[in-house]
Computed example of a mutant assay.
Amino acid sequence: MEQNLDAIFSALSDPTRRAIVARLSRGAATVAELADPFDLAQPTISKHLKVLEEAGLIATRRQAQSRPRELCPIALKGIADWLEDYRHFWRESFDRLDAYIEKTGGNEK
């Protein structure tokens, strides 16, 4: 799991790949459709897609002559599960901050 998280976070470290994932969250798309909003050649987009696919974030399916890419939500669930541990930490931190503000009346500098 840890190694897969490393690959996922590495893949998502690039803004173009994050934009591709965001686009695929709305449905499957071909390489041409994914390349359209970027000022990048299709081979460059294909390299980004390969990184995302190797990380398990997207999959390619065959549909007649095209090969649309689609999002693999199970990989995103892995990230959400990992982040859940930290959500508890932040919740406790905010609760302590709320208690401190209430105790001081918010007048501390």
Rank of each mutant, 00 (worst) to 15 (best):
Thr44Val: 09
Ala19Gly: 13
Tyr100His: 12
Asp98Gly: 04
Thr44Lys: 04
Val21Gly: 02
Ala7Arg: 06
Glu33Phe: 06
Glu70Cys: 01
Phe94His: 01
Ser10Asn: 11
Arg69Ala: 12
Ser13Ala: 11
Arg69Asp: 02
Asp39Gly: 13
Phe9Leu: 15
Tyr86Lys: 07
Ala80Gln: 06
Tyr86Arg: 03
Arg23Asp: 07
Pro73Asn: 03
His88Glu: 15
Asp98Cys: 02
Leu57Thr: 03
Thr30Ala: 02
Pro73Gln: 01
Arg26Gly: 13
Ala35Tyr: 01
Val51Gln: 03
Arg26Met: 12
Ala28Lys: 09
Arg62Lys: 14
Ala64Asn: 13
Ala80Val: 04
Leu57Val: 04
Asp36Pro: 02
Phe38Lys: 12
Leu76Cys: 08
Glu108Tyr: 11
Gln63Glu: 14
Ile74Met: 04
Ala80Asp: 09
Ile8His: 07
Phe38Thr: 07
Arg96Lys: 14
Arg62His: 09
Lys47Tyr: 03
Ile45Cys: 10
Ala55Ser: 12
Leu40Met: 14
Lys103Gln: 07
His88Trp: 10
Arg23Glu: 03
Thr60Arg: 15
Glu70His: 02
Ala19Pro: 00
Thr30Lys: 07
Gln65Glu: 10
Ala32Tyr: 02
Gly56Ala: 03
Leu49Lys: 11
Lys47Pro: 00
Asn4Trp: 08
Leu34Asn: 10
Gly105Leu: 02
Phe9Cys: 05
Ala32Thr: 07
Ser93Met: 14
Glu70Ala: 03
Phe94Tyr: 03
Ser66Cys: 07
Ala64Ile: 08
Pro15Lys: 02
Pro37Arg: 09
Asn4Ala: 08
Lys50Glu: 09
Val21His: 00
Pro68His: 11
Trp90Met: 14
Ile74Gln: 09
Arg26Ser: 14
Asp36Tyr: 06
Lys47Ser: 11
Pro68Asp: 04
